[in-house]
Design a protein around this nucleic acid. Structure first.
Lengths: 246, 246
DNA sequence: CCTTCCGTTAGGCTC
DNA sequence: GAGCCTAGCGGAAGG
């Protein structure tokens, strides 16, 4: 495909706010927060209506270079090359794609209004615990969620156990780290200062980093294994129940 | 395009290990570490030779769903749909794309052997300081890089200043945080325990978070503004010099 | 606007 | 293989 012809088609796509797919032989230069160069190779360029731009190599999940939505995109011919330039300000960044050859340019006007439904985020894990507190332990009763503690931040779930002891629960959807344990200790300290009584501290996560295990004993924190998957099942069961009751 | 025809073309692409681009009306279901569903919409599907797979909506820099390299990809017809399935084990995950309509399928055999050259990573900033220590301060002399400190971790650069004082330098390519300052203090404490002498602590970064500024005074840490860009220039000059000497 | 925190983080490195 | 850290992280939520 001739570069002049291709550049016209790309400009048309930009005007029409189409999704633009370009396949060809291109080099890439990026300068901004960091800087990178990539010599010529056969790649896939995607330009979206919102100004996002992605350069994909034949291998790998991630784009090799990109620019997020809102970038200003220009196309021009210089010597025997076609250049696509994507600029953004704040941070000042420029991505320049230099085409040596263009194999194909495709334009699409796509419509997609569906909403992504994502399950078992950390938020969902909290909802699962509130829906069925026994997954933390038998007799656990939540009192508050997102309780503020001094300057430290927010407790995921604050409650009482079967014996009437205060309990602070910290939720993580990934393995808990030493930093997580320390944050939880901050909360416990804050509550102790506030209410004059030291609560139990429970970290609920799918696992815990080995390096953090010793901190559990040192600081008297309890670990409760709780996976996102388990929470998904709890929410599903609860969802099913609600549907049945309605 | 007929679904049967499309599925044959995609299978051919998989056999030939081609880059496959599919545009059409599709729904998406993902289940693995988390789970998500997305109703039908017009999207772009990319399947790469290495088994990476990406679903892109008309807007946004990020794929809405994906699977990293190494996924096992299957295509089959069921009722009036074509399904593309990408599975991986460890973690067990499945991505299922259900096509209602297919507008286009494109196959490409791309060759790309260029090497990405990235400048001014944190590693490069360290190299720049080692190449020209005066960018930290006049008279600074590095002794060691990546020096281990007890259990705390590794010092980026350990050296002495013009007066013969020990200096610990911590490098960040982004604004320094309070956590960075505290980590640096850990190192300084470690060195003091080890060598019986408290070194100066310098954090070299393009900036520092407002909330961390007070910690500088509290803990006696010095801040030296050093941008990736500046380091890039130092390395370029040094590269030029080396080229001249050789 | 800046800061903090989560992510199907991914990817790379070490043990 | 698992654990741990970095990233042009991106993105969202909160101040």
């Amino acid at each position: 495909m001739l570069l002049a012809e291709a550049s016209e088609k790309i400009r048309a796509g930009l005007r029409e706010r189409a999704l633009i797919i370009v396949v060809g032989l291109m080099g890439v230069a990026y300068e901004g927060r960091a800087a990178s160069t990539l010599g010529p190779g056969e790649r896939l360029l995607i330009i979206k209506q919102d100004g996002s731009i992605l350069v994909h190599r034949p291998l790998g999940y991630e784009p090799v270079n990109w620019q997020p939505p809102g970038s200003k995109i220009d196309v021009y011919l210089v010597d025997d090359y076609m250049v696509v330039e994507a600029r953004r300000i704040s941070p000042q960044e420029i991505l320049r794609i230099i085409f040596h050859e263009i194999y194909e340019v495709y334009l699409f006007k796509l419509s997609d209004s569906a909403e992504l439904a994502m399950y078992a985020t950390e938020e969902d894990m909290k909802r699962a615990i509130l829906a069925d507190p026994s997954i933390i332990e038998e007799g656990f009763r939540p009192i508050e969620d997102e309780r503020k503690v001094g300057e430290s931040g927010f407790i995921d779930i604050f409650g009482v156990d079967g014996e009437g002891n205060l309990v602070v629960v910290e939720i993580k959807r990934r393995n808990a780290t030493a930093a997580d344990v320390k944050q939880l200790i901050n909360y416990v300290d804050g509550i102790e200062r506030e209410l004059g009584k030291r609560p139990r501290a429970i970290i609920a996560a799918p696992g815990i980093q080995k390096s953090a295990v010793k901190d559990l004993k040192v600081y008297g924190v309890e670990f409760k294994c709780l996976t996102p998957k388990k929470c998904r099942e709890v929410l599903r069961k609860k969802g099913g129940l609600e549907r049945f009751i309605d």
